[in-house]
Computed example of a mutant assay.
Amino acid sequence: MIKTATRSGILLFMLLGFLGYSQNKKNFANIPNILQQIVPNDRIDSWILVYNNYGKNQEIKTSGGKKEYTPQSSGFNLFPSEDSFYYIVYFTGGKADYVTDLEGLKKFTGKIDNAEEAAIVLTADGYMVDEEFKDVAGNYYEDSAHYYMDMGKLTSKECPYQKTHYTLTVNKSSGAVSNIKDNGTYIELYNKKCANNPRLLKIQKKEEPKNDPKKQPAKRK
């Protein structure tokens, strides 16, 4: 009886340990690494991932034979940036086609094959892997049926500048998002131009002149 109870306890402990391990969150790598995990579902001969930074092109990944193509002047970003972008050139039957926006990237990615592709597809809906804050907006865990993604979203470009983080449940088979949990704002930045800047309002309040009865002009009779 004691042996049976001991064995049951060990099995329960192992099961709980396994479940706990399966839900350990994994941080995503950097954006180039995420994009390199794409497994296109359409039949293509080859494709090249290009990173453009300040007008200079750098080939990040080449899959299949390399061919000549026309450098692009615009592209997509998985994380907001004004000075750089990515684009993909792919070849089918000797013809070159280009992916230069997030909707095109979503179509090129096709069916979700891994967590990185799930993150890429979600960027078309405004979500992002925040490389600076991966613990709150750049990680995931998974079970046999779903990915559970912690990602960020730029929720205000005005005053204050805000980022909010969400947990999204993504079905591995269909790619459908079944649940979106709002975890609140994790960045809120004010600047001097913000009329609602708490610090500025506090300074203005201090500088407001106080009414001094001695300095009031005498009333005329």
Rank of each mutant, 00 (worst) to 15 (best):
S8W: 03
S8C: 01
L11V: 14
L11D: 07
L12V: 05
L12N: 09
F13S: 15
F13T: 14
L15T: 13
G17P: 04
F18R: 02
L19S: 13
Y21N: 05
S22G: 00
N27S: 11
N27Y: 13
F28S: 03
A29T: 14
A29W: 00
N30M: 12
I31H: 10
I31T: 12
I31A: 07
P32H: 07
N33L: 12
I34N: 07
L35P: 07
Q36I: 03
Q36R: 14
I38R: 07
V39W: 00
N41S: 13
R43A: 15
I44A: 09
I48P: 01
L49S: 10
L49T: 05
Y51C: 03
N52D: 07
N53D: 15
N53L: 12
Y54T: 11
Y54R: 11
G55F: 02
G55Q: 11
K56Y: 11
Q58L: 03
Q58K: 13
Q58I: 09
I60G: 05
K61W: 01
T62K: 12
G64I: 04
G64M: 08
K66W: 00
K66M: 10
E68A: 14
E68V: 12
Y69S: 10
T70D: 06
T70P: 00
T70L: 14
P71M: 02
P71N: 04
G75F: 04
G75M: 04
F76D: 06
L78Y: 11
F79E: 15
P80F: 06
S81Y: 08
S81I: 00
S81G: 01
E82K: 15
E82V: 08
E82R: 13
D83T: 14
D83Q: 10
S84Y: 01
Y86M: 05
Y86S: 03
Y87S: 12
I88G: 02
V89G: 06
G94Y: 03
G94K: 11
G94S: 07
K95T: 13
K95N: 11
D97Y: 08
Y98D: 10
Y98N: 14
Y98G: 09
D101P: 09
L102Q: 09
G104A: 05
K107D: 14
A115R: 06
E117T: 12
A118T: 04
A118R: 02
A119R: 06
I120L: 09
